[in-house]
């Protein structure tokens, strides 16, 4: 565990906490894309298949459980919770996310480390995670105004993979650890998708103004 990896995990954890806080405190999930949340639930459920077969550390297992349970809880709040499900901007959240699932399945079947059940699902989760933010970004762009907590949620979620890239670079030089090229490529795509958002986030932060995305 190095400082970059820890920073990545913490920003990831923080993004989830900010999102749960937003839904709990404001009793609203407006501005949040259910499509993106469903994709994340699918990402964690398929990536952490090793939760019961490989023990790495208590930290590792706890984080896996946190990411699986929080993503499922958020989907539940948006779909079924009597108070919050009505605040979901259904009409703005029209991204055809099943296309992302389909493309990720095809990519995982073609490009993987080994043709085993677990490795194909792992590759699928990496590809899907790289693009899972797209419905959320489209929803924000459509609604224009972004509330503070939602803006912070997306910011921390984007920062997490950027820290992971630094962690892979660090591990490459210090441990001679060779992260799989699948993670490198998907990690870069994932971080690049946030470039626009990061730009407007920093501009609004510098000007101490409300975050607004151009139409």
């Amino acid at each position: 565990m190095n400082i970059f990896r820890l920073a990545g995990d913490m920003t990831h954890l923080f993004s989830v906490l900010v999102l749960l806080l937003k839904i709990y405190a404001t009793k609203s999930c407006s501005g949040i894309s259910l499509k993106t949340q469903e994709l994340y639930a699918l990402v964690f459920l398929t990536r952490y298949l090793d939760l019961f077969t490989d023990f790495i550390s208590v930290y590792n297992s706890v984080m896996k459980v946190v990411f699986i349970s929080s993503s499922v809880a958020i989907v539940w709040c948006m779909r079924y919770h009597p108070l919050t499900r009505r605040t979901y901007d259904k009409d703005l959240d029209t991204f055809r996310h099943y296309i992302l699932v389909g493309v990720s399945i095809i990519l995982a079947l073609l490009f993987h480390d080994r043709f085993t059940f677990r490795e194909v699902f792992w590759a699928f989760s990496i590809y899907l995670e790289a693009v899972a933010i797209l419905p959320q970004l489209v929803l924000l762009q459509r609604s224009g105004n972004v509330d503070n907590l939602t803006g912070q949620y997306v910011f921390f979620l984007g920062a997490y993979r950027a820290f992971y890239i630094l962690n892979w670079i660090y591990r490459y030089f210090t441990e001679n650890h060779y992260s799989r090229w699948i993670s490198w490529l998907a990690g870069f795509v994932q971080t690049a998708l946030y470039a626009d958002f990061f730009y407007y986030y920093f501009v609004s932060w510098k000007n101490n103004a409300k975050l607004q995305l151009p139409a």
Partner: peptide, 10 residues
């Protein structure tokens, strides 16, 4: 053949 390496990252 080497065994499947566990994924140590999240």
């Amino acid at each position: 053949e080497e065994n499947e390496k566990p994924h140590d990252e999240l």
